[in-house]
Design a protein around this nucleic acid. Structure first.
Lengths: 199, 199, 199, 199
DNA sequence: ACTGTCGGGACACCCCGTTATT
DNA sequence: AATAACGGGGTGTCCCGACAGT
């Protein structure tokens, strides 16, 4: 039967995800993963050639899930400003995921910085995401709801920065502010501007 | 005048900063630091009780430097919107620091997440910074240059998010965009809004 | 007719022989043998109870082949000194076998030293060989072509030592000398003596 | 004081030599060496960068000792045939060394075969030895005690082969014959020849 | 007969921190 | 103030062998 193998693989992946998130990649030992997954080291190294490979596998499902989310997000728009507000709400959903997964997200970042092959895998969906947002802005310009002097690519970077920065702060200091609300406020500010004076 | 002792301490600190940035805290061994600094392990443990203590020492000088920058930034303002634009320029300065220091910055984050005592040390200047920005916005409201419906604290969070998010992206993908310019654009967007439609 | 089973067994044996020779017994993993033979680990352990058993199996065919060679060598003699020269030529033939097989030969030695049951299996044909040579020398004494003051058993040991020593040197330093020629010279020296002075 | 360090180093070397000889290089674990030497793994890796380095260190003292023996052996000659007989007696001395050291000798061989850098270190004194013997034979030719038709280099190879082969047999089957006596006989045979018939 | 999966136990290497020594 | 030697305990990796499932 093929299912037992897949089951074990999954148990390893799950345990590793937990532990990487909780303690970090370096601080998590293979034996801990094995203990957490309830498998032997032999089984571990049958399914994965190295600890790093487990990490990459986790990353892969993450990135794919992220990609799927983006594709569905794109469809939610009819009027662009409203669409952006809705997407901000999406971002909020991420807040509610457990803290452990957050830390894993950082772990990805760190690894990507240091390991070019991880970086390559991670940069693609990121750029994809940028393009989607830029497309949304372009639609907004076309439909007349977005200021045509805005460069869509730049705008996308700024929007991503906003989301990323809020995520970071929320992660670092979860109880320091009402992050979900602020996210909404942030999008609103960006749409309408905060200045009362022509610049 | 500084004795040889202080000199050794500094060599250790410098070497550690380099290596932590290059390879990460966990991946950097004490012996590597010693080799990099040209001192023996005995000397190392004479000056610092543990590897973690070296890290904290590095963090301290970083945080202090950050604080100083904030204090000086506060003075740059006379008209608030212009002040914000100027501060955005400040952010750009950080781009130009070497990549290695960037990674160190992440290392701080990771450690702060996992070690409460580090978190305590790191959160204080961060909150301080938030308050400064909030104060700036408040001034803007008072002088009539900022929309009075804006909550200064929320606005500060959004501005910090913008800066943080751009820093992150610039770090992760340095050649992916003209980050310095985008920073300026971002502040401009936030000030004037990107929507062409009343919301 | 041989079933597929025998075929698999042979593939394993062949691959193992190669790898043991190339990298040594200890350094060769069962999985490498499996990979080299193109069979699964299950198949391996279906045919052999352990890695050691594979080694023994290889040893067995070697020893048997060795024995056969001896039997045929015995017949080549009519005049004893000429027969010895001819046997030296036989030794030369071994030179031409690939280096990998050489190393395997050493591997046998090592194992024999450490594992009594291997030693038992290896010592028998060796002693058999000694006896054959001793018999040849005895014939030589009988026919008057060999000095009757020679103890045939001792002479056999010396002749074997000569062959073994040359083999060893040839293996260790293949290009250090013209080994094939030296072998012939060696037998000649032993037959006629190298001293020009009565001793 | 420098002595403690050297003492530890020596204890490691001694223990390793024993164990390598007894069980083989691959089968001997670093922890066993440490246990045998009564030192910790930390100490071990302070003195040697790897298990292989320990092996090489042992090899080095062996080779040097071997070289010294050769130099002294060269002086023992006044009449060459007698000198060769005396050197054969020298060889006998090696028989009396413990079996463990023997096995180590093989270990050297095996490693030399597989690791070029070891081979390089081992081949030099071997060639040196060959040259010494060849020199002795040349002297014999000059003084008229050795057959001038003998090529000294070839003769040296044959003599070394004789010694090597006897050593090997003695090692492999210590009680199979009176090896010390046979060694003497062997040299005698080589000097006077075993054939009773002109060839 | 043959496969994939798994178990448990080494392995060499290296780590952080201490202690004797100067 | 600084060093070299040292202590254990851990690391990722891999290996030999077993066994359930074709």
């Amino acid at each position: 039967m093929q299912t037992r193998s897949e089951e074990t693989r999954l148990k390893i992946l799950t345990a590793a995800q937990d532990l990487f998130g909780k303690a970090g990649y370096d601080a998590t030992g293979v034996s801990e993963i094995c203990a957490g997954a309830g498998v032997s080291k032999g089984a571990f190294y049958h399914h994965f050639p190295s600890k790093q490979a487990v990490f990459s596998a986790i990353l892969d499902v993450w990135l794919e899930r992220l990609n799927n989310r983006m594709l569905s997000a794109r469809l939610a728009e009819n009027n662009v400003p409203d669409g952006l507000v809705a997407m901000a709400g999406q971002t909020n959903a991420i807040f509610r995921i457990s803290k452990d997964h957050y830390a894993l997200f950082f772990e990805f970042w760190m690894q990507a910085i240091r390991h070019p092959e991880i970086w390559q895998a991670a940069i693609a969906p990121y750029q994809h995401f940028q393009e989607i947002i830029a497309g949304v802005l372009q639609s907004g310009i076309s439909e007349g709801s977005i200021d045509p002097s805005i460069n869509p690519a730049d705008g996308a970077h700024v929007l991503v920065a906003l989301a990323l920065g809020l995520l970071l702060q929320a992660f670092f200091d979860p109880h320091g502010a009402a992050w979900e609300e602020i996210t909404g406020q942030g999008v609103h500010m960006l749409l309408t501007g905060i200045s009362r004076r022509p610049i």
